[in-house]
Design a protein around this nucleic acid. Structure first.
Lengths: 137, 137
DNA sequence: CTAAACCTTCCCATGATGGGAAGGTCAACC
DNA sequence: GGTTGACCTTCCCATCATGGGAAGGTTTAG
């Protein structure tokens, strides 16, 4: 199976499949005599796994760990659960940060007349000395 | 005032101050005879404004718009409110996406024994054909 | 006078992804 | 058989916001 079929079946673009291979997230597949990558059903399954993990917000590094656990018959479910729970905690933290931003902004917008006049508490507040605030990334 | 003082007072690193200047987010400040950038209190205030906007999740482009509105005495509060409300909507959407991820993962973790055995519903689910899922970015 | 602490510009790297060029290959159609 | 279009390959570049660091000039404190 060529890379574009693999891309379609897995939902991972051909570009990203090559990238994932180049960084070792997935192992290199075999090549046909013409040099084209050749994908088996198993290889597709790995790509689908990766796609789903990425869509759930796991970084490429975390996904690498998950793939490793997935393919390791001897892993304990404790290991898997631990990794997933850590990600849940991380997501929750980021959600709270974004909620705090949103609520601050919604409060400011509420206090702003939103008419033709220039007076706007939003800008006055933004100009205040920066307070301790979430600095994501 | 030298750039490191401006950095300290504004909470924006010297690196980022130069970067913001290079992309035109802030206007270039004057130079002293030795070529060093020289920051006035007004310039510091702009940097503080920028830092606060960034910390509230505005992109650099959105921040540019906000700075423009802030410095435009003739702007209407309607313009400002509109921009902020759009950002609130965007934040809310992203929060919902992340919540959906988190809840999915939390549900999977709950179904996983987390003991020494290898059986783990998490990995089984991740390996399923990818369903419609949030693809941020 | 020297050493440390500044400042300047310039280049490189990140992470995940896409765009595109240059060049080889294959399949279908006439 | 030849042409065309759709593939495939690798390689380079760009993104966005940020940091690291080099090379070289300046200022300040001892």
């Amino acid at each position: 199976m060529n890379i574009s079929d693999a891309a379609q079946l897995s939902g991972v673009s051909a570009k990203m499949i090559r990238y994932y291979e180049s960084i070792g997230l997935i192992s290199a597949v075999g090549r046909k005599s013409n040099g084209y990558r050749d994908y088996s059903d198993d290889a597709i399954a790995v790509l689908q796994f990766v796609r789903r993990a990425r869509s759930l917000g796991f970084s490429v590094d975390e996904t690498r760990d998950l793939v490793g656990l997935w393919q390791d018959r001897a892993r304990s479910s404790r290991q898997v659960k631990k990794l997933v729970e850590a990600h849940v905690v991380d997501l929750s933290r980021r959600i709270e940060e974004m909620k705090a931003m949103r609520d601050t902004l919604a409060g400011l917008a509420r206090a702003c007349a939103g008419d033709e006049r220039p007076d706007c508490p939003i800008l006055i507040d933004l100009a205040k000395a920066p307070r301790r605030a979430a600095r994501r990334h």
